[in-house]
C-alpha cells in the first residue's frame, strides 16, 4: 500500500540575484533564508526514499498559451524537458544552467490521469509541455547535486481566468491521495508558488503583498482547519495576490487533515516568501 511520505509547499522563484535586483539586499537575504529551509526540506524528502515526487505548480503562460489553457493538466510520458527561453529575463533566467531533461514516474502519472477521468475529473494531459521555474526551482533547490526523484508534474491554471475553484483543487488533491493509497509507491508531494504577490496581476501593484491574508492562511494550515480554505473564491485569491495558492489547495486536499509547520515566512513587498511542511510521516 502506497503512502504520501512527504508534503511541503514553498515559494518558487528561488534566485538571490533576482531578488537583489528587484528589491535590494533585504530581498537577497530573505530568499537565501527561505532557500536554506527548502534545502532542509529536501534532506527530509530524500531521507524518506520516495519512489516519485508529485509537483503541483502553475504555468506562467509558457507551456499552454494560447491554443488551450487546461484547468488541471497531468504531464505523462517518460521524460520532461525544462523550458528553454532565449535571452531570458527576470524569473525565466532562474532556469539557465539547470539540466534539460528529467525522468518522469510514468505509471503514477498515468494512474492519476486515468483514474481521475474515471472519478469525474476531466483532466488534460500533455506529452510535450516543458516545465518552468515553478517546478524546477524548488525541485533543484531540494535535490542539489543529487539525482532528481522521478517527477509527476501537474499544472493548475492559476492565472488565466476563469481558474478552477479552491474547492475543486482540494477535491483533486483527495483524488491524488486515493491513487497513492492504492499504489505500491512511497510518494513525495510538493506544491509551489506564493505566498501573496502581484495582487490583481496589475503591474502598478507589483511590490504589494498581503501579510494579513497570508497569516490567516498559515494559521489555518497550522491548525489543520481546512474548511475555511475550501470556501475561498478565485476573486478573493486574485485580490490578495494568492493566485498560486490553488496549487497549495491541491496538496492540502491530498494530506487533509494533517497539520502544517511553517518552516519559513519572510515578508517582502515583492512577495511573501514561505516554506511549509505537513506532518504526514
Amino acid at each position: 500500500m502506497g503512502k504520501i511520505v512527504f508534503a511541503a509547499a514553498m515559494s518558487h522563484v528561488l534566485d538571490p540575484d533576482y531578488y537583489q535586483a528587484a528589491c535590494g539586499l533585504t530581498g537577497r537575504r530573505k530568499v537565501e533564508a527561505c532557500m536554506a529551509e527548502i534545502e532542509k526540506l529536501g534532506e527530509t524528502l530524500l531521507a524518506r526514499r520516495p519512489d516519485a515526487l508529485i509537483v503541483v505548480a502553475d504555468d506562467h503562460l509558457n507551456a499552454f498559451s494560447f491554443n488551450a489553457v487546461p484547468a488541471i493538466c497531468v504531464r505523462i510520458g517518460r521524460y520532461v524537458n525544462r523550458m528553454i527561453q532565449d535571452e531570458a529575463e527576470a524569473f525565466d533566467k532562474v532556469l539557465d544552467g539547470m539540466p534539460e531533461r528529467y525522468t518522469l514516474h510514468e505509471e503514477l502519472a498515468n494512474r492519476i490521469l486515468e483514474d481521475g477521468l474515471g472519478a469525474g475529473f476531466d483532466l488534460a494531459l500533455s506529452w510535450e509541455a516543458p516545465i518552468d521555474h515553478a517546478f524546477l526551482s524548488p525541485v533543484m533547490t531540494m535535490h542539489g547535486a543529487r539525482p532528481v526523484t522521478p517527477l509527476v508534474p501537474i499544472w493548475i491554471n492559476c492565472f488565466v481566468a476563469p481558474q478552477p475553484t479552491p474547492a475543486r483543487c482540494f477535491a483533486f488533491g483527495r483524488h491524488i491521495a486515493r491513487v497513492v493509497a492504492t499504489s505500491p509507491w512511497n510518494v513525495g508531494l510538493i506544491a509551489t508558488g506564493g505566498l501573496s504577490h502581484f495582487p490583481e496581476l496589475r503591474l502598478p501593484r507589483v511590490g504589494e503583498s498581503d501579510v494579513v491574508f497570508d497569516q490567516k492562511l498559515l494559521g489555518w494550515l497550522a491548525e489543520g482547519e481546512h474548511e475555511p480554505l475550501r470556501a475561498l473564491t478565485p476573486a478573493e485569491l486574485d485580490k490578495a495576490g494568492e493566485h498560486e495558492f490553488l496549487n497549495w489547495m491541491t496538496l492540502i486536499g491530498a494530506v487533509t487533515p494533517a497539520r502544517a509547520d511553517v518552516r519559513y515566512f519572510g515578508e517582502l513587498g515583492r512577495i511573501n516568501l514561505a516554506a511549509v511542511e505537513w506532518r504526514v510521516a
Binding site: A88, E89, A90, F91, G269
Partner: peptide
C-alpha cells in the same frame, strides 16, 4: 518577461 521589452519593477524593501 518579454526579452528586451520586459517591465522591470524595482523597489526598496
Amino acid at each position: 518577461s518579454v526579452p528586451g521589452m520586459a517591465a522591470h519593477v524595482t523597489h526598496t524593501e
